[in-house]
Every structure is written in C-alpha cells, then in structure tokens.
Computed example of a mutant assay.
Amino acid sequence: MISSPLTFPELFRLPLVLDLRTAAQAFGFCQATAYRLIQDEKFPCPVLRVGRHYRVPTAGVLKALGIGEMPVYTDDITRGIEYTEERITD
C-alpha cells in the first residue's frame, strides 16, 4: 500500500522520535519499503534499533526532507498551520 507523504503542518506536529510506519509515511513510502531500505542500509536518515522495534529521530527525517537546520518558532508554525488549513478548506 502506497502512503501519501505527510503535509508540512503534520511534520511539525511530530514527536521527537517516530515509529517506522510514521517515518516511512513522511517520505511517502510504505512500511515494507522502509524495512527493505533499512536492510539495504539506504534509509534516507538514521534509524535506531530499540529492542525489536525501529525508531527514527524526527530531526533526521526533517533534515533528510530539507527542513533540518533552520530555526523554527512556534508562532510561525501556528501561522503556517492556519494558512494551510484555510487553503485546504477553500
């Protein structure tokens, strides 16, 4: 099953560490593809193995998507979410 990528506002609502399914969705691919990329050591950002589970730091996902190093302010995020929601409902 192909997953649609997360929207910009959804990306900024993410917790500090993601489960593999959510990280895969951020990149727009399914969980099976994510497992294959990890096995081939080609996942687009660092992945942590925690017990039997994979965890992906959100900072790595954002950096791989080109959103990494710039400062982000809460007011900017709120305005961006409001703007996006207005555009979607129009």
Rank of each mutant, 00 (worst) to 15 (best):
22 T>D: 09
22 T>K: 11
22 T>C: 09
23 A>L: 07
23 A>P: 05
23 A>N: 02
23 A>W: 06
23 A>E: 14
23 A>K: 00
25 Q>F: 07
25 Q>H: 03
28 G>A: 11
28 G>D: 10
28 G>K: 08
29 F>P: 05
29 F>R: 09
30 C>N: 09
31 Q>G: 04
31 Q>M: 07
31 Q>K: 14
31 Q>S: 11
33 T>E: 15
34 A>M: 05
35 Y>F: 15
35 Y>I: 03
36 R>T: 11
37 L>T: 03
38 I>A: 08
39 Q>A: 10
40 D>V: 10
40 D>C: 12
41 E>H: 13
42 K>F: 00
42 K>Q: 06
42 K>G: 07
42 K>R: 15
44 P>W: 13
44 P>R: 08
44 P>N: 06
44 P>I: 06
45 C>S: 05
46 P>K: 13
46 P>D: 06
48 L>V: 12
48 L>F: 12
49 R>P: 08
50 V>G: 13
51 G>R: 10
51 G>W: 10
52 R>T: 05
52 R>D: 05
53 H>M: 14
53 H>G: 13
54 Y>L: 10
54 Y>T: 09
54 Y>Q: 12
55 R>C: 02
55 R>D: 08
55 R>E: 06
55 R>P: 01
56 V>T: 03
56 V>I: 14
57 P>C: 02
57 P>K: 03
58 T>N: 02
59 A>N: 07
59 A>W: 03
60 G>I: 01
60 G>K: 04
60 G>T: 00
62 L>T: 05
64 A>P: 06
65 L>P: 05
65 L>S: 04
65 L>H: 00
66 G>I: 11
66 G>V: 08
67 I>Y: 15
67 I>Q: 01
68 G>I: 07
68 G>W: 05
68 G>K: 08
69 E>S: 14
69 E>G: 14
69 E>N: 15
70 M>V: 13
70 M>K: 14
71 P>A: 10
72 V>M: 05
73 Y>A: 06
73 Y>T: 10
74 T>V: 12
75 D>N: 07
75 D>R: 09
75 D>L: 14
76 D>H: 06
77 I>D: 07
77 I>A: 06
